[in-house]
Design a protein around this nucleic acid. Structure first.
Lengths: 155, 155
DNA sequence: TTAGATGCAAAGATTTTGCAAGATC
DNA sequence: GATCTTGCAAAATCTTTGCATCTAA
């Protein structure tokens, strides 16, 4: 029986890495980009483009939806953020901290609550799960569908 | 090193089960429903609602998009089909044949090509990966992101 | 006959794109 | 000052819903 634990909330200096990488590739710095990066660094788990806009409005410089998508897509193409699809038709993004353990997500199919989790044995099995000849592996994504305590009560 | 193989294309009499279950729950039979079921049973892997409409038009009685979605959703709620999200913003559905090995999907991030795969070790690890207290497990979904031979050639 | 199934079209929701205005280098 | 970034609004998708019609039971 493997143990499922929450990943540590601590993260390294991801924002600095993100800005440095973007500069190296030749992109200019701007208010929207800075805001999205601040929000992503502070987030404990994945956020949708819309959620990034909301948090930016609350605790950083406001960002337009289009810019949110554009910055996220740029960070994604540089592998600075991971794009996650949990099955509700909304793309979510989270910072990829080099050296941090890979985590996956559990989702309540009733209320949509999301929690990160990591599991060493699962990670080893994924590492051993390689594609058939002719395909080169990029990565794996695991979604655990659950019912949370609140939603599971009445059934 | 675990072996990744394609699941058998053979399936049992899923269509009969689907119709029987729908009747048991009190639904009436109709042309759209029959068509969607025929298409799903014949499909070797997951299909989008739009693809179901296209195949129905080609090899069965034509079905409207709305009906495709409605029938698929109904089958999904009865756990006769699985809903799969591969990260391209399109929901896909595939028949769940009781007794058949659970399979997952690999997706080429360039061209979107999809292939089913199954892996015993991964399945055991998933079986052992349970949610934290307070959550009840429904199931796991694994997506393997790859680059296929064609798309990987030029890089 | 009656309630459910179906299809078309309109509405919703998410994501992308066009373009003018504002920053960065 | 030239070019990239940003934001608004329009467009493009995918999915759901309203409603009249058809149909199974």
């Amino acid at each position: 029986m493997s143990t499922v634990t929450r990943p540590p909330a601590l993260r390294g200096d991801w924002a600095r890495l993100a800005h440095a990488t973007l500069s190296d590739v030749g992109h200019r710095s701007g208010a929207a980009r800075a805001s999205v990066i601040v929000v992503l660094e502070a987030a404990p788990c994945c956020l949708s483009a819309q959620e990034v806009v909301e948090r930016a409005h609350e605790r950083a410089h406001p960002v337009g939806v289009a810019s949110s998508y554009r910055v996220l897509e740029r960070l994604h193409s540089l592998e600075l953020v991971r794009r996650i699809d949990l099955g509700d038709g909304v793309a979510r993004y989270e910072a990829v901290n080099p050296g941090e353990h890979r985590h996956h997500h559990l989702v309540c199919i009733e209320c949509g609550r999301i929690e990160p989790f990591e599991d060493a044995r699962l990670e080893r099995a994924l590492h051993a799960t390689t594609p058939p000849p002719g395909f080169s592996l990029i990565d794996h994504e695991v979604v655990m569908r659950v019912r949370c305590a609140v939603c599971g009560r009445d059934r």
